[in-house]
Simulated scan of single mutants.
Amino acid sequence: MSRRFVPVDRRILERNIKARYHAGDIGTEDALNLFDELIQVAGPSSVRAINCLLTVVGSDCPALGVSLFNRVARTKVPPHNVTYGILVDCCCRAGRLDLGHAAMGHVIKLGFTAEAIVNFSHLLKAICAEKKTSYAMDIVLRIMPEFNCVPNIFSYNILFKGLCNEKRSQEALELIQIMVEDGGCCRPDVVTYSTVIDGLLKEGEVDQAYRLFSEMLRQGVSPNIVTCNSIISGMCKLHAMDKAEEVLQQMLDRRILPDVTTYTSLIHGYYSLGQCEEVDRVFKEMPRNGVQPNIITYSIQMDYLCKNGRCTEARKIFDSMISLG
């Protein structure tokens, strides 16, 4: 069987586009010029280079990305599943969810659904952004499996974020339990737990948030500094200082070193409660753990000292800030 002949000039152009794309060396204007040049000679093998150009243009101007796709559709280049993924993303970010649905219809019609997890993800994010998370849940839990597209943890995490943004963290908590009890390959990860814990804290559910944090540890999911700082910050804002200190201890036990954000949250929490001795204790603890205050920490400290009649100390801190640069 003979190989299909690809003109040398086109092959060189496609190779050049892909190399520059992966090197991050194509801007929007350049991508448009290259697209005009490639589309005149494009053949079936051009789809990968075209995808690169669509991605660049679509990232900067989604509506223009949709327009370029329409030009591709009129050529001899059969769009790939990745091409449709770019199209769905562009439609959704351009505020045209209706066109995003239409593009997914083509994906289904062409039989790309089994590998369309990214395409669905773009659609899910747009649906959740419109506060229609219940519809997004129907897509993940019913529609995607029907088309043999197995939802992954990224799909579920979009749902968790949507539920928590709609202040439906109790439903998110139930969904986590279902995933854990199911015991399948798609299990909650650190993003899942962090999202729902943050949602619970924003709804004032301190005890449930702490229980979920403990459950995360029992499930063998290791928190990172971002997760811990988010939890500590939320608990300090709700004046649950005992729970915040317990999370800090869990960090230290797991050798996750607290940073200036960790301590600033604790200082602000104790300061808002008027617990002066605890504020002083945290400030003394920071240098022992190799953490230096930043401008926010110093500002909180000076405000605290001035309001407690310790203006001379506050002035010394201000002067030390200047000397420390």
Rank of each mutant, 00 (worst) to 15 (best):
C149I: 06
P62G: 02
V77F: 00
R11Q: 15
D36Q: 14
L13H: 09
F69K: 05
C128W: 09
N308Y: 02
A103R: 00
Y270Q: 06
Y21C: 12
E277P: 03
Q177V: 03
E29C: 10
R96L: 08
V279G: 07
L305Q: 06
T75P: 03
P188Q: 06
L200F: 03
A129D: 15
G199V: 07
N308M: 09
I300C: 07
G85V: 01
T192V: 02
D207A: 14
A240N: 12
F318G: 05
C164Q: 05
K76A: 11
C149M: 07
P188A: 09
L201P: 11
E277H: 09
S155Y: 01
Q292T: 12
I176R: 10
K202S: 06
K76S: 08
C92D: 08
T195A: 06
E203R: 04
I300E: 11
K125I: 05
I153Y: 08
Y271A: 13
L200G: 05
L200W: 04
N224C: 15
I117H: 04
G204W: 14
D30T: 14
N289R: 15
S299T: 14
M241P: 03
L163F: 10
I158K: 10
G204F: 14
I143V: 10
L217N: 11
S230N: 13
R218D: 12
C91Q: 03
S45A: 09
Q292E: 14
Q301P: 04
G269K: 03
V107M: 04
N51Q: 01
K307L: 08
C185F: 02
N229T: 13
Y210I: 15
S45T: 12
E215G: 12
F69L: 06
H22L: 14
S299R: 13
N33T: 12
A314F: 04
M251T: 13
V107A: 06
I176M: 09
M179R: 07
R254M: 11
L68H: 12
P223V: 13
C306T: 08
C52D: 04
S320V: 04
V191I: 13
D253P: 00
F318V: 00
V118E: 03
P287R: 04
E14I: 04
G27N: 15
S222F: 03
G100W: 01
V180S: 09
N294K: 11
G162P: 13
L238G: 01
F5A: 01
P151R: 11
T192N: 12
R71N: 00
V196T: 13
E278D: 14
C90M: 06
Q177I: 02
Q170F: 14
V88R: 01
L97D: 02
G204R: 05
S46Y: 02
Y21G: 13
K132I: 00
R74C: 10
G43I: 07
H239V: 01
